[in-house]
């Protein structure tokens, strides 16, 4: 069989498995035992069940919010619309939030998509690498005049999820030890997600804190990122450092090219 023929066969097989359309590939299957279409259907259901299972594992809060039947239906439709691109099932589901945003049966739950995005950030944080830790001793040796030019990185597990809804309150209320009623019903939550000592954590950020983190992430030095000195930068920076959010830092080389502003 030519390379193009193999590709066509594989695509037909994928359609049988993911879309439940066995006709294009059934002719290639050797007869014997169960009918080819029925065998393909069994295979397809097993694949779907695995994909839905992967999504369930990564989205326990969405699952709890909508229940088993609803989740299974939404997840299997998502699996057909955006099948995995990696052999690692842990990587499958990055687009589930975006899918739910356009999922008509979820229109009455406009916060659901952002809850899924938050869960995906937690899922990724649990699998991120370790990165380079903050070198406290080297930091102590930075001369005072160079402090404002320090550029900090973050732990690889760090991400920020923004929503027009109180997604952190919903997420917290649906952890295993809670019964599901959020502490508040309003909020535009911007959530910082990271992994600390093996545990994924999520906290809400103020607008000022988000701006600071985004400025550092874009490569700005400490002085520029801090903005106006009218907030408690010392307390916040200390929190970031003590919870392992901050990673390694570097000093801007004097006389080097000026940093590019966004």
């Amino acid at each position: 069989m030519s390379a193009g023929g193999l590709r066509a066969l594989q695509e037909a097989f994928a359609r049988a498995v993911l879309d439940g359309d066995p006709d294009p590939v059934a002719a290639f299957i050797e007869p014997g035992g169960e009918e080819a279409k029925r065998r393909l259907a069994i295979y397809g259901r097993a694949v779907t069940a695995n994909l839905v299972g992967a999504l369930r594992g990564a989205h326990p809060v969405v699952l709890r919010l909508v229940g088993d039947a609803y989740f299974h239906e939404a997840a299997s439709r998502y699996a057909r619309a955006d099948p995995p691109r990696s052999g690692d099932l842990n990587r499958f589901g990055s687009g589930f939030g975006a899918f739910l945003e356009g999922y008509e049966p979820a229109a009455a739950m406009p916060w659901l998509a952002d809850v899924a995005r938050l869960e995906w950030a937690c899922h990724e944080a649990s699998m991120a690498g370790d990165g380079e830790p903050l070198d406290f001793e080297a930091l102590a040796h930075v001369p005072l005049e160079a402090q404002g030019e320090l550029r900090f990185s973050f732990h690889p597990s760090v991400s920020v999820v923004k929503s027009a809804w109180p997604i952190l309150a919903i997420w917290e209320a649906n952890q295993p030890d809670r019964e599901g009623t959020p502490d508040r019903d309003v909020g535009e939550d911007t959530v910082l997600v990271w992994r600390e000592s093996g545990t994924v954590r999520a906290v809400a950020l103020s607008a000022r804190e988000v701006a600071f983190i985004e400025a550092l992430a874009s490569g700005l030095g400490l002085d520029e990122a801090a903005g106006e000195p009218d907030w408690d930068l010392p307390a916040f920076l200390e929190q970031l450092a003590s919870h392992g959010v901050l990673g390694a830092f570097r000093r801007e080389i004097p006389g080097g090219p000026p940093p590019i502003s966004p």
């Binding site: 370790d130 830790p133 903050l134 406290f136 001793e137 930091l139 102590a140 930075v142 402090q147 320090l150 732990h155 597990s157 992994r195 600390e196 000592s197 093996g198 400490l222 801090a226 930068l233 010392p234 307390a235 920076l237 200390e238 450092a241 003590s242 919870h243 392992g244 901050l246 990673g247």
Partner: peptide, 20 residues
């Protein structure tokens, strides 16, 4: 701010928090 962060390193509390 940096003095506070450096002080963390002395007690190594911050170093332990890093998921290394």
């Amino acid at each position: 701010a940096l003095a506070g962060v450096i002080a963390l390193g002395v007690g190594s509390a911050g170093a332990q928090a890093h998921d290394g």
